[in-house]
Amino acid sequence: MATGGRRGAAAAPLLVAVAALLLGAAGHLYPGEVCPGMDIRNNLTRLHELENCSVIEGHLQILLMFKTRPEDFRDLSFPKLIMITDYLLLFRVYGLESLKDLFPNLTVIRGSRLFFNYALVIFEMVHLKELGLYNLMNITRGSVRIEKNNELCYLATIDWSRILDSVEDNYIVLNKDDNEECGDICPGTAKGKTNCPATVINGQFVERCWTHSHCQKVCPTICKSHGCTAEGLCCHSECLGNCSQPDDPTKCVACRNFYLDGRCVETCPPPYYHFQDWRCVNFSFCQDLHHKCKNSRRQGCHQYVIHNNKCIPECPSGYTMNSSNLLCTPCLGPCPKVCHLLEGEKTIDSVTSAQELRGCTVINGSLIINIRGGNNLAAELEANLGLIEEISGYLKIRRSYALVSLSFFRKLRLIRGETLEIGNYSFYALDNQNLRQLWDWSKHNLTITQGKLFFHYNPKLCLSEIHKMEEVSGTKGRQERNDIALKTNGDQASCENELLKFSYIRTSFDKI
């Protein structure tokens, strides 16, 4: 039985969820670079991206490699990797027998973001014989899940209580170790020597080791999670996991709180800001991140802002960003909400898709409305799209047979046209069989910064309504002859009103 693990408890099935942008060198404390989270699957090609990484700022997932063999891993080693800020997950990587050479110096898994409450997941690794993470000293947050690894031993010899604050939620089941077939031998045991430290858990006094050649490092209890030197002297209180010299914040392997210019500090002093819960960055760093993602459509890219001495992905609820200094300031009234469309555009074809934009005031991208039916549609669209004030790209209304009016965009005031449909149009209306009105132009103002209007096959939309939009939106004169079809717009509506004058002759039985 794995020490510190839980057996036999019912657990939810383990679901495996399925960018080499360097964020800056980590400095003297770390020998390499800070790398983003990685999802490495199918083959070993991307694994080489770990070569210079000291910190993975995010998670590391290595999974679904069915053609790899043990010899493929023999020359692979990433000794610079010290810390993973989120979680480490391995799933069905064939041929991998140990992690001792792959990650010989991995010391800390912070667990800032977890995989279903777990910071370390080893699942269905069919050839893994031992973990071998002999320098792993601290899992700051989260638990361990090690399950269905039929060859995995050296679990009962690990004292997880020396690595985690609590072992109650560890789930370590259905491994070879369960069948008591392992016969784990710690260093020196074969020669009758006791080389590794022994600890007591559940009444068992057991030597602690990761492999037959690597003991588990056990520091004096007084050192807590700070770690200790090879001689057993406690590291500085700002260290986490390990250090090369005692009581020196510049000799830590990793930091308990924050890293700044080669030393570990309790908090980031001005003019620095907390970033990702582990390091200090200056304003320029946060500003660069903001600008890199301002026009990016890459998933996970955030326009970072500053709030409460932190550089964070977005302002919290009730705050909006001051564009001059990136500071989050309290909103006066309802907060603006910028919604970034991942692929640059979004099609609204149902109430469900409209709900995804609920509360958005600025759309960074283009909207395509293609709704053919739905219950209580006008009210639903207004509830979900009615706060949109600005669209950076274009607005396209296409084959939306259920629409009679666009009044559900009740606050839309600006279409920038930074991206144009077919390279020309910022407003595009095609084949809307029941569209009769755009907006009530006596109450609604709309500016279209650039781009043209396109109207074709809107049989109940009168040309007068379209011409009014040209005047109000500032697009009059931009359109070419064929942009607004004269014969297919309003051709099934009563669009022309003329005053009919009647004269009559009164007659009676005795007068003409």
Rank of each mutant, 00 (worst) to 15 (best):
G111S: 01
S161E: 14
F283W: 04
S323G: 14
D75E: 11
C311Q: 00
E49Y: 03
F115L: 09
C311Y: 04
M65Y: 07
C182L: 03
E181N: 14
N138D: 08
K176W: 14
V173C: 14
F66T: 03
E49K: 09
T329S: 04
P249G: 10
H28D: 07
E151S: 09
R141A: 03
H274G: 13
L155N: 04
F205L: 04
I306T: 03
Q216L: 06
C311F: 03
H127V: 07
P313Q: 12
S161C: 12
V265T: 04
T189I: 11
C186E: 04
P316Y: 04
E49H: 03
E33G: 08
K148V: 10
L60G: 00
P36W: 15
P104I: 01
N295F: 08
G183L: 04
K67E: 06
N257W: 03
Q299W: 03
R298S: 07
V34I: 05
M83L: 13
C196K: 03
C268W: 00
G241K: 04
M38P: 01
L327M: 07
M137Y: 04
R141H: 08
C53P: 00
F78K: 02
A230S: 09
S244W: 07
N309G: 08
R141E: 10
Y94D: 05
Q299G: 12
L128Y: 00
L155Y: 09
I163S: 01
D184P: 05
L326S: 06
F116G: 08
P269E: 01
C243G: 00
W160K: 01
S213F: 00
F283H: 03
L152Q: 03
F91N: 13
S77L: 11
C328I: 02
N170M: 08
C331S: 03
G132M: 01
F283Y: 10
F283T: 06
D178E: 10
N325C: 14
P36I: 11
H214Y: 03
S213T: 07
S237P: 11
T45F: 06
T140R: 09
V218M: 05
T199D: 12
L136M: 02
T140D: 07
L90H: 00
N179L: 07
F73A: 05
E314A: 12
V93H: 12
L88E: 00
A254L: 14
D277H: 11
M83H: 06
D39M: 09
P70Q: 13
L88V: 11
D248P: 01
N105I: 01
L155D: 13
D159P: 11
C268P: 00
C196Y: 02
N149K: 01
T189F: 13
C153L: 02
K129R: 05
C219Q: 01
S161V: 07
P334K: 15
I306S: 03
E180N: 10
K217I: 15
G188S: 08
D184F: 05
W210V: 11
E151M: 05
P36F: 12
L50H: 01
L29T: 11
G192I: 03
R298L: 11
I201A: 08
E238D: 11
G333L: 07
H59K: 15
G142E: 00
G227K: 02
D159R: 10
N308Q: 14
N42D: 06
M125L: 05
C209T: 03
I56V: 04
C182R: 08
D288T: 07
L327D: 15
N295V: 01
A156I: 13
E71Q: 03
D178R: 09
L29Q: 06
I146T: 01
H48N: 14
D261L: 05
C255A: 00
V121M: 05
N117W: 06
E181A: 10
T157E: 05
N308V: 08
H307E: 09
H127M: 01
N150R: 13
I62D: 00
Y304F: 13
F115S: 07
C215M: 04
L174R: 09
P271G: 13
L128T: 03
S244T: 04
L133P: 01
I109N: 00
L155K: 04
N170R: 12
T68N: 01
Y154H: 04
C293M: 01
P336Q: 15
V218P: 08
H307N: 15
C228S: 02
C315V: 01
N309I: 03
P246A: 14
L131T: 12
C219R: 02
N179Q: 13
D288R: 15
Y273H: 09
K224V: 13
E130K: 07
I122Q: 00
F103A: 01
L76Q: 02
I172L: 06
C234M: 02
L88W: 01
M321E: 03
C252L: 00
R298D: 05
S161A: 14
L332G: 14
D177T: 03
N52G: 13
I163P: 00
L332R: 13
S317E: 11
T157K: 05
Q303R: 07
V121P: 04
K191H: 03
T68I: 04
H127D: 07
S324V: 13
L289I: 15
I158D: 02
E238L: 05
P31V: 12
D39T: 10
T199L: 11
L136Q: 02
C182A: 14
S296L: 06
C328G: 01
E231K: 01
G241H: 05
G188N: 09
K310N: 08
R297M: 09
C219L: 02
L99T: 07
K217P: 06
